[in-house]
Computed example of a mutant assay.
Amino acid sequence: MTGRGDWFGDKEERRSYHHGRLKDALVEAARRLVAERGLAGFTLADAAKLVGVTAAAPYRHFSDRNALVEEMARRGFEQFGERLHKAWDLGQPNPRTALARMGEAYLDFARQEPGLYSAMFSNIQTLSAPAPGTAATKALDVLRTAAQVTIEASVPGPADGRELAFRLWAYAHGVATLTLAGHLDPAFEGGDPGHVLRQGSAALIDAAIKRAQAISR
C-alpha cells in the first residue's frame, strides 16, 4: 500500500496546505479512501489524518462530510464529461462508432476513478446540490447530443436523443457498477464488461433508430 508520504509529500509540503492547497489535498485523500473502503468507509477526520492536518482543519473548506462528497462529485462529473466529449470527437469517423467509443470511455472512467465514481452516484441529494448537479447535466448533454446525432444519421429530419441517452446512461452505469463489484469480469464466460456494454448499447441504439424510422414514415 502506498504510504501517506508518497501521496501527500513531506512535512514541509504538508505545511503548505495551510496556505491554499488543503482543499485539493482533502479531495485527493477522500478519493483514495473511498476507492479503498467504499463511500461509507471514510470520515472528514480520516481524510485529515491522511493529509497530516488536525481533525478541525477540513472545516475551513467543508461544512461536513457531505460537502466533501459533493465536491468530489462535481470534480468527477467534470472529468467524466471531458472524457465523454473527447471520446465523441465530433462523431468521427461516424456517429455509431463514436457513440460506442463513449461507452468505452464511460467504463474506463469508472474503473480508473472508483472513488470519484462512487461519489458521483452516491445519492440524489448529492446530484440535487447546484455544483455537482450542473456538472452532471453537462455530462448528460454530451451523451444526449451524441445520441441525437446518431439517430439523425439514420432517419430524415430532427430527432430527440434524450430517451436514448438516458437508456444508454442507465445501461452503462449498471455494467460499470457490476464491474466494480466484481460481478462482471473477462475471466467469466460471457462476462467481459466491455463486450456486455458494446452488445447491449448496440441493441438500445438499434431499437431507438427503428422507433424513429417508424415515426418518420
Rank of each mutant, 00 (worst) to 15 (best):
T2N: 11
T2I: 15
R4D: 09
G5N: 11
W7D: 10
W7T: 12
W7A: 14
W7V: 13
F8H: 10
G9T: 11
G9M: 08
G9Y: 10
D10S: 09
D10R: 11
K11L: 13
K11G: 12
E13T: 15
R14C: 12
R15Q: 07
R15N: 10
Y17S: 06
H18M: 12
H18R: 15
G20P: 07
L22R: 08
K23L: 00
D24S: 12
L26H: 02
L26S: 06
V27A: 00
V27I: 10
E28W: 06
E28D: 15
E28S: 14
A29G: 08
A29N: 01
V34M: 04
V34A: 01
V34N: 04
A35M: 08
G38S: 04
L39Y: 01
A40R: 12
F42Y: 02
F42C: 04
L44M: 14
A45P: 02
A45G: 14
D46W: 00
D46M: 12
A47N: 02
A47C: 08
A48G: 05
A48V: 13
L50W: 04
L50A: 15
G52P: 09
G52V: 10
V53Q: 11
A56G: 14
A56V: 15
A56L: 14
A57T: 12
A57N: 03
P58Y: 09
Y59S: 10
Y59P: 06
R60N: 09
H61P: 08
H61Q: 07
S63I: 13
S63L: 14
S63Y: 10
D64N: 05
R65C: 05
N66R: 15
N66E: 12
L68K: 05
L68I: 06
V69S: 04
V69N: 01
E70M: 12
E70W: 08
M72Y: 09
M72P: 11
A73H: 06
A73K: 01
G76L: 07
G76D: 01
F77S: 06
E78S: 11
Q79L: 07
G81L: 04
E82P: 06
R83E: 02
R83W: 01
L84P: 07
L84I: 02
H85P: 00
H85L: 15
H85I: 00
K86S: 15
A87D: 01
A87L: 07
A87Y: 09
D89K: 11
P95H: 07
P95A: 12
R96I: 13
R96Y: 05
T97I: 14
A98R: 10
A98K: 11
L99R: 00
R101E: 13
R101Y: 03
G103A: 10
G103E: 03
A105H: 00
Y106L: 11
L107E: 07
L107F: 05
D108P: 00
F109I: 07
F109P: 00
F109A: 08
F109S: 05
A110P: 08
A110G: 03
Q112Y: 09
Q112G: 13
Q112E: 15
E113D: 03
G115Q: 07
S118Q: 06
A119G: 06
A119Y: 05
F121V: 01
F121W: 05
S122V: 05
S122A: 15
S122Q: 06
S122C: 13
S122W: 04
N123P: 02
I124L: 12
I124M: 11
Q125V: 08
T126M: 00
L127D: 02
S128R: 13
S128E: 06
A129T: 03
A129R: 06
